[in-house]
Design a protein around this nucleic acid. Structure first.
Lengths: 74, 74
DNA sequence: TTGTGACTTATAGTCCGTA
DNA sequence: GTACGGACTATAAGTCACA
């Protein structure tokens, strides 16, 4: 299956965001990325670089590996 | 710390390769990339995309998350 | 056998508008 | 507030000559 990591990342970020009742725009602002890009990430459409994943994880104080993990069952 | 994931990836791949006594060229051949590109990855100089990491893991029958993990202590 | 810099092509990532 | 398209700029993907 192709794109598993980016789909996991998207799902995890969306969960994180909605749990905090933030808009995509607000989260995009925190992460210093563009709002449309943020949407693409959450939809699993974006093939991020390792550096970008690290950057996001760092900013949100999360473990980058956790962000990439399939947590659909958790 | 910046570039942790790509350094982990490089270290893990190198460990995997040397354990099997393969040359960079031989591994590059398996992964269907150029030898110098492979070298760059092992040195942690390449900021790979999620898709590339997945591709490598798949080809080597490894867990992509394990490839990205810091296993210097294991 | 591996490392480095220069290089071309593909795509990550920004930003605007429209729905 | 979110999704999608297109145009743009920065950088990853991937190779080569030479050390």
């Amino acid at each position: 299956m192709d794109g598993q990591l980016q789909r996991n990342l998207g799902a995890n970020l969306r969960k994180w965001r909605t749990k905090r009742q933030l808009s995509q725009e607000a989260l995009a602002d925190v992460l210093a990325v563009h709002r449309t890009y943020m949407g693409g990430i959450e939809r699993g459409e974006r093939n991020l670089t390792l550096r970008s994943v690290e950057q996001i994880a760092e900013t949100l104080h999360l473990d980058p590996l956790e962000l990439l993990r399939d947590q659909s069952s958790g």
